[in-house]
Computed example of a mutant assay.
Amino acid sequence: MKYDLRFPIVIAALLVVGLMTVSTAALSPRASSGIFTKQLLGVALAALPIGLLWWAGRDRIYRYAPHLFAAALGLQASTFVIGKEVNGQRNWILLGPLQFQPLEILKFALILMLAVVLAGGYKGLSTYARAFAVFLPAAGLVVVHDFGGAMVLGVMFGVMLLAARIPAWHALVAVAALAVVVPTVLYPHLEPYQQKRLTIFLDPYADPRGAGYQVIQSTIAVGSGGLQGKGYKQGSQSHNGFLPEAHTDFAVSTWLEEQGFVGGVIVLVLYGALLWGLAGMAAEAPRLQDQILFAGVLGQVGFQVIENVGAALSVLPLTGITLPLISYGLSSLVSTLATLGLAYVVHRDRFEGQL
C-alpha cells in the first residue's frame, strides 16, 4: 500500500522548528532546566501511542472510544483532588519526575467520542442530546481551571457539529446566542485576572507593568526581528529574560525575533500545508464519521494556531493556548502528535469495510 508522505514530512518540519525554538528559549533565565531534553523525550514518547494507533486500525479505535473517553474524564476530574497548580491553574498531575495535563488526553478522547456519537449525521434534536451529553461533562471539568482549554474544546465541538450536517440556521442561532451569553453571563463570572487577560490586548499599555507586560514584550520581540531576524540563538528579548513564557505561550515570538518575517512566513506556510492536508483527508473520506473526525482535528489544530499567533501579535486575547508542535510541553506535544497520527491512520483505513 502506498502512503502519502507529504503529511508526515510537514509535521516533521514543524517539529524541527519547535526544537530550534525550545533550544534557544532554554537560554532564557526564566526557562526551567532541561526543557530541550524533555521536548526531545516528548517526540520519542509520541511513538508509543502512534504505534498503538497504527496497529489498532480505524475500526478498533472507534470501538474503544467510549472507554478512552471515560478514562480521560476520570483523569480530568482527578485534578480537583490531586492536581498541581501551575500559573494559577490547577490542571496538572505529577507522574514521578514528569507532569502532564489530562486536558491533552481529553482533547484526543473527545474528538474520537464525538465522531462516534455523530456518525449518523444530523437526525433531529436527538443528535444534539447525544452530542451535548458527551461535550458538557468534558467542558464543565475544564472551564473551572482552564478557560483557554475550554475554548479549544468548544471550537472542536462546533466544527464537528457543522461537519455532521446540522442545519445552517441552527449554527447561526448558536453564534448569536454565544454573542449574547459570553459577555453578559460568562465573562462577569470569570476571575479578575482572567478578565484582564481577555481584554488587555486592546490596550496593553493601560497596564504596562502588569497584565499588559507579556503582550508588550512579545510585540517588541516580533518587531525587533525585522525581515530576516537576528539569527539562531541571537534573540535578546528571550535570552535576557524580558519575554515571559518564551518557550510556551510566546514560542512564536521567540522564533520571529530570531528568524524574522521570512521565518514567520515559512511557519505559516507549514501550518497551512498541515491544515490543507487534513481538509484533503476529510474530502477523500467516503464515510461521514471519518469526515467528522477530521473536522475535529482540523478545528483543534487550526484554532490553537490562530489564537496563539494572534495573541503573540496582540490582535487576539491572551488565553494561554500553546502553539501545536512548536511550543514546549511534553503532554501537549505527545497529544498533538497522537491526534495527527490518528487522522493519518483513519485516512489509511478509509476504504476498509466499504462495499
Rank of each mutant, 00 (worst) to 15 (best):
A168H: 04
W169Q: 07
W169R: 05
H170F: 09
H170I: 00
H170S: 10
A171Y: 00
A171E: 00
L172H: 02
L172S: 01
L172Q: 00
V173I: 15
A174Y: 08
A174P: 02
A174V: 08
A174I: 01
V175I: 08
A176V: 07
A176K: 13
A177W: 06
A177K: 10
A177Y: 04
A177D: 03
L178M: 14
L178W: 07
L178E: 04
L178P: 01
A179Y: 05
A179W: 02
V181F: 14
V181P: 09
V181N: 13
V181D: 12
V182R: 06
V182Y: 10
P183Y: 06
P183H: 07
T184S: 14
T184E: 05
V185C: 10
V185H: 09
V185M: 13
V185Q: 11
L186H: 09
L186Q: 07
L186F: 15
Y187G: 06
Y187I: 00
P188I: 02
P188W: 03
P188D: 01
H189N: 14
H189E: 10
H189Y: 10
E191G: 05
Y193T: 03
Q194P: 04
Q195K: 15
Q195S: 05
Q195Y: 02
Q195H: 05
K196V: 08
K196L: 13
K196P: 07
K196T: 11
R197V: 07
L198G: 13
L198V: 15
L198Y: 11
T199C: 12
T199S: 15
T199F: 14
T199Q: 13
T199E: 13
I200S: 08
I200M: 10
I200D: 04
I200F: 09
F201Q: 10
F201C: 10
F201S: 12
F201N: 09
L202F: 13
L202M: 14
L202P: 11
D203F: 09
D203W: 06
D203G: 09
P204Q: 11
P204I: 00
P204M: 11
P204G: 06
